[in-house]
């Protein structure tokens, strides 16, 4: 497993207050390319902190984090921003879309920040919107969409630059059950297409149905890790095919 590890977290610790209890305490974790991993735990266990560290949104106080062969905890702010553009797509619980921009403009943003040519970026965005069945909303503003539709827009944005890694923090936490199931199926399909997935969730159903490995955190430490399942076959019917 370690030979094809996309993510390697080694003895990472993160404190928000000096002298206080670490939010993440000496965590080591590897994720292989193509894995779908759920990170679970009660509130305050360090799930989101761990995700933020892997995404480079925050820096650990101790330890190292290597993603796609690059040590990201020592990169400059510019370097880590470029890493995120290229390697890590982020999906948030409350979508984090920009209300002033249309759906299409929201999706285009990562490509525009990366300097992708306009025509190529628009083609890719349209492809994603169509694949996620929200192409008809391209000129709408996020405020007018349902929770499920907004999360699809966020997923499209996260996939815009074909990242090696998709990181989702409670992707179904702010949507209704039906929409949550749709999102879950979507993530499953993406993983089936080869997308590496790390999902933070407190929803055991989501974790069980849509991921193959569950890592549990308790007080900033890994309390259990189911590891890879024996059956690594791709689901028979992947309903969403997104070209990598």
């Amino acid at each position: 497993m370690t030979e094809d590890a996309l993510i390697r977290v080694t003895e990472v610790t993160k404190r928000y207050q000096s002298g206080g209890r670490p939010a993440v305490d000496g965590v080591s974790l590897t994720v292989a390319a193509g894995e779908a991993v759920a990170v679970m735990g009660p509130s305050g266990s360090g799930k989101s902190t761990l995700l933020n560290l892997i995404a480079g949104l925050d820096r650990p106080d101790e330890g190292s984090i290597i993603v796609a062969g690059r040590r990201i905890d020592t990169l400059s702010e510019t370097g880590v921003a470029r890493f995120r553009r290229a390697q890590a797509g982020m999906i948030f619980q409350f979508f984090n879309l920009l209300d002033d921009l249309t759906v299409l403009d929201n999706v285009l943003l990562p490509a525009q920040l990366a300097g992708v040519r306009r025509a190529a970026a628009r083609a890719r965005a349209q492809e994603l919107l169509d694949a996620l069945r929200i192409g008809q909303h391209r000129d709408a503003y996020p405020g007018r969409l349902s929770g499920g539709e907004r999360q699809r827009v966020a997923i499209a944005r996260a996939l815009m630059n074909r990242p090696a890694l998709l990181l989702a923090d409670e992707p179904t936490g702010a949507v209704d059950t039906a929409a949550g199931e749709e999102i879950g199926e979507l993530l499953l399909d993406l993983n089936a297409s080869g997308q590496t997935l790390v999902v933070v969730t407190h929803n055991p159903a989501l974790a069980g149905r849509y991921t193959r490995r569950v890592v549990r955190l308790m007080d900033g430490r890994i309390s259990s890790d189911t590891g890879r399942q024996a059956d690594d076959t791709v689901a028979d019917s992947a309903r969403v095919q997104v070209q990598p």
Partner: peptide
């Protein structure tokens, strides 16, 4: 500030 965080999360560099 929150929007700025979103921009950074999707890859905006400090110079941008």
């Amino acid at each position: 500030l929150h929007d700025l965080g979103v921009f950074k999360a999707i890859g905006m560099t400090p110079r941008q």
